[in-house]
Simulated scan of single mutants.
Amino acid sequence: MTAFLAGFSLGMLLSFSAMFVYITVSPHVLIEHYGFSSTAHALVFSSNATGILLGNYLNSRLLHRLGAVPLIGLGAVATKPRHPQTNSMAKSLNERR
């Protein structure tokens, strides 16, 4: 397996893991911790599902237009950690290399 394919596989593994964690934990957190009603939780959950569908549609269009590698770079820039502590941790990890 090439490193490129391993990176794609790891990305898919992490995204699906995050999705299933959200599906499993969101009722408990939103209803019991934050006090949402069942209806409010359903609205939040369905709006997230709609966002995922729209994001996948947009991704399929951009993938044909731009290709996979530019989209991965765009995603990395768009999701770059912006918290000062996270940035300092990333810098210290890069300095150790």
Results as ranks from 00 to 15, higher is better:
residue 1 M to S: 12
residue 2 T to G: 15
residue 2 T to K: 13
residue 3 A to D: 15
residue 4 F to C: 04
residue 6 A to Q: 15
residue 6 A to N: 13
residue 11 G to C: 05
residue 12 M to W: 04
residue 12 M to H: 06
residue 14 L to H: 08
residue 14 L to A: 12
residue 15 S to H: 07
residue 16 F to P: 00
residue 19 M to C: 08
residue 19 M to T: 08
residue 21 V to G: 02
residue 22 Y to A: 05
residue 24 T to D: 10
residue 24 T to R: 03
residue 24 T to K: 03
residue 25 V to P: 00
residue 26 S to D: 06
residue 27 P to M: 06
residue 27 P to D: 05
residue 27 P to S: 04
residue 29 V to A: 11
residue 31 I to F: 03
residue 33 H to R: 10
residue 33 H to P: 00
residue 38 S to K: 07
residue 39 T to Y: 06
residue 43 L to V: 11
residue 46 S to Q: 05
residue 46 S to E: 04
residue 48 N to A: 11
residue 50 T to W: 10
residue 51 G to E: 06
residue 54 L to Y: 06
residue 60 S to T: 12
residue 62 L to H: 00
residue 64 H to C: 09
residue 64 H to E: 14
residue 65 R to C: 04
residue 69 V to L: 14
residue 70 P to I: 08
residue 71 L to F: 02
residue 71 L to N: 01
residue 72 I to L: 14
residue 73 G to W: 08
residue 74 L to S: 08
residue 77 V to F: 12
residue 77 V to P: 00
residue 78 A to K: 01
residue 78 A to Y: 02
residue 79 T to N: 14
residue 79 T to G: 12
residue 81 P to T: 01
residue 84 P to H: 05
residue 85 Q to R: 15
residue 86 T to L: 13
residue 87 N to E: 13
residue 88 S to Y: 04
residue 89 M to E: 07
residue 89 M to D: 07
residue 89 M to C: 11
residue 90 A to Y: 09
residue 91 K to S: 09
residue 97 R to A: 05
